Amino acid sequence: MRILHILNHTNRLNGHVHAAVDLACAQAQLGHDVCIASGGGDFDPLLHKNNVATAMVDHQRKPVNLLKSSFALRKHVHAWQPDIVHAHMMTSAVLAWPICRLSGTPLITTVHNEFEKSAILMGLGNRVIAVSEAVRASMLRRGIPSSKLCVVLNGTIGSVRSEGRSRTPVDLPSPSILFVGGLHPRKGLPDLFEAFRLAHEQHPEARLVIVGEGPFQTNYMEMVAKMECASAVAFLGAKEDPFPWMAAADIFVLPSHADPAPLVLSEAREAGCAVIGSKVDGIPQLLEYGAAGILVPPHDPPALAAVLCELLGEPARMQEWKDKSQVHLDRLTISRVAHETLDIYGSALAAGSKNAAVAA
Rank of each mutant, 00 (worst) to 15 (best):
A24W: 07
R136N: 13
N219V: 07
I108W: 15
N355W: 12
W245P: 00
S266T: 12
D330Q: 12
A234D: 05
W97I: 15
W80A: 11
M246D: 00
H112N: 10
L329Q: 09
L208T: 06
E270P: 06
E222A: 01
E267T: 02
L149N: 12
D58V: 00
L30Y: 08
L67D: 00
A53M: 07
A195W: 11
P175E: 07
A93Y: 06
P106L: 13
L308E: 13
E194S: 11
F43A: 04
L172G: 04
F115G: 14
K324R: 04
S146N: 14
L4D: 08
L67Y: 00
P204Q: 14
A303Y: 14
R12N: 01
S266E: 09
A238F: 06
A306V: 14
A248C: 02
A19N: 13
A357L: 07
R101V: 15
G41D: 05
L30R: 09
L46P: 02
V152D: 10
A130S: 15
L47N: 09
S231V: 03
R167L: 06
P242G: 06
R12L: 01
S325H: 03
A195D: 12
R331Q: 13
P45M: 14
S166Y: 01
N50T: 10
A93F: 06
H5M: 14
I84K: 14
K148M: 10
A137T: 12
E133S: 15
L287R: 04
P255E: 02
A359P: 00
N8E: 07
D83F: 13
G181H: 05
D171N: 10
G277Y: 07
F71P: 04
D259C: 06
A238I: 08
L295T: 07
R186E: 12
A137S: 13
L265D: 04
F71S: 01
T91C: 02
P175K: 08
G293P: 01
P284M: 04
P315A: 09
V34R: 15
I3K: 05
P242T: 03
S132E: 11
L46N: 03
L46I: 06
